[in-house]
């Protein structure tokens, strides 16, 4: 097979290689019916560029798929966290308990309040026990959010009790004005339940 080295063809080959090297794989060597070995090289470069585009498209598709999956997982995780963050338990007919765990910011407090108020109405609850055993420290926005929750429960006619307040949390509650609400605080959830049941006449009055 003959080889016709044409300056113009070599120049074009180099231009295509430089352009492809800068990341533009859409460029192609112009092909003509030349019966020589350089045509193999020219077409080979075009085929290589086809392959690069194919791989790039596959990578983009995989990336998109991974992003979609990540978004889906994040949404599922958010839903799960939301469900776990408001585990409202009916401990006795008309008596709800809500163990609070972790940091409670404004957004979470709003979600918890909304879910809790819905349950207070649905269960016609007379008492709500907020258990703070899982709250190690109260962040800046947590206490006002908690106090709003207590007020809202009161407006629906239910009585709110706080339990499991840790020693390091108690001063924070006082400092943030929590004691103005005159909410009954007890050591353990079981104490609160005993008190409520006594209020309802189910149990003898416990020590207060």
């Amino acid at each position: 097979m003959s080889l016709t080295i044409s300056h113009a063809r070599i120049h074009e080959l180099l231009n295509v290689l430089v352009t492809a090297g800068s990341g533009d794989y859409d460029v192609r060597v112009r092909l003509e019916e030349n019966e020589d070995a350089l045509l193999d090289v020219e077409m080979g470069i075009n085929y290589l560029l086809d392959e690069l585009i194919d791989r790039r498209d596959q990578n983009e598709a995989q990336e998109e798929e991974l992003l979609t999956r990540a978004r889906q997982l994040a949404r599922q995780q958010e839903e799960l966290v939301q469900a776990l963050s408001t585990p409202v338990i009916v401990v006795w007919p008309g008596v709800l308990a809500l163990p609070l765990v972790g940091r409670i910011d404004d957004a979470r407090a709003a979600t918890i309040t909304s879910a809790l108020l819905e349950r207070v109405t649905a269960e016609q609850a007379t008492h709500v026990i907020l258990d703070l055993t899982g709250v190690a420290a109260i962040a800046g926005a947590t206490m006002p959010a908690l106090l709003r929750m207590v007020r809202a429960i009161g407006l629906l006619g239910a009585r709110c009790l706080l339990t499991g307040i840790r020693p390091e949390v108690a001063p924070q509650i006082v400092e943030l004005g929590g004691d103005d609400l005159h909410v009954r605080a007890l050591a353990q959830l079981s104490d609160a339940l005993a008190l409520v049941l006594a209020d309802k006449g189910v149990l003898d009055q416990p020590h207060r």
Binding site: L31, E32, E33, N34, E35, L39, D40, M43
Partner: peptide, 8 residues
């Protein structure tokens, strides 16, 4: 009889 097809 095409050089391009043959090369491909």
């Amino acid at each position: 009889n095409s050089a391009l097809v043959r090369t491909a």
